[in-house]
Amino acid sequence: MKSQQPVNSESKEKKRFKLKTEGTLALLLLVLAVFLTIFTKGFLTGNNLSNLVRQTAINGVVALGMTLVIIAGGIDLSVGSVVGFAGILVALLMKSGVPIGLAVLASVLISFLVGTINGVMVFDGRIPPFIATLGSMAIIRGAIMLISNARMIAGLPKPFLDFAQTTYLGFPSLFVVWLILILFTIFLTKKTPFGRNVYTIGSNIEVARLSGINIRFTTYMIYGLSGLMAGIAGILMTSRLANGIPTGGQGYEMDAIASCVIGGASLSGAEGTILGTVMGAFIIATLRNGGNLLGIDPFILQIVNGVIIVAAVYIDQYRKAHQK
């Protein structure tokens, strides 16, 4: 085989590059962490790190579902509303006497269904995902206000509230849930035919169709899972805040999208990884945490946040352009 020589050297090249993709983010995170350790007293303490992962977890869970949608070339603007919806729904169900387990299960399932409806609009209705989920974002938020009368729902059962305060092996429960979902979605994207189909649909839907991929089912599942993740996040939030909050989750779709793109996902589809998104979520949360610890002017912090998003995507594009 005459092409043997280039094969070897290029595959090495490829590996080095692969390390760079998430490596850049890991490095950025490390720099942030070292900086904060040096310049603040509190950053590298168990207490603060445990806070940090708890603060990241809820947005992080939402971002996992968003990653699937973005890899498939779509977008889900309704996740913030679904967070609020599931949070209110679980509270209402428990208040009306439904057992905790059942209330949680029902809320998660309904969130999944709500997500699936987005999938129906996108696949069967051929509505662009941006528009379809923009619509459902408003519809769901309206539904929340309707079922809650725009009021907080308090007086939830204690075991439900205790969950968010529990730790497992020293890790906060919210983080543990996130971790399980991270592992689940990594498995889903890396190891299953479903995951391959998501990437294929994101790269070219016509190719996917002619390759016999069940696009309808896959699209339903992608948006369904995005809803499901948002639903779980909403339930975690209600447990953490001890109240169903009608305004909960507002703007979370933007944080989720930011996590994904910082993590290397491309809004044109077929690019992105769960691990990248997780790091993206950590970077956003660490900035916020660090800003608070240092007492940085919040407006400057906001600017830094924006710069990081743009810079991360720019670096990624630059790296990809120079890869060829």
Binding site: T192, P193, R196, N197, Y199, T200, G202, S203, N204, E206, V207, A208, L210, S211, G212, I213, G269, A270, E271
Partner: peptide, 21 residues
Amino acid sequence: RTQGLALPLSVKTNINLLQYK
């Protein structure tokens, strides 16, 4: 390019596209 291949994905993935199940 528009009907046969998932261009941004790897050779391995494309070859296996019908096989994953």
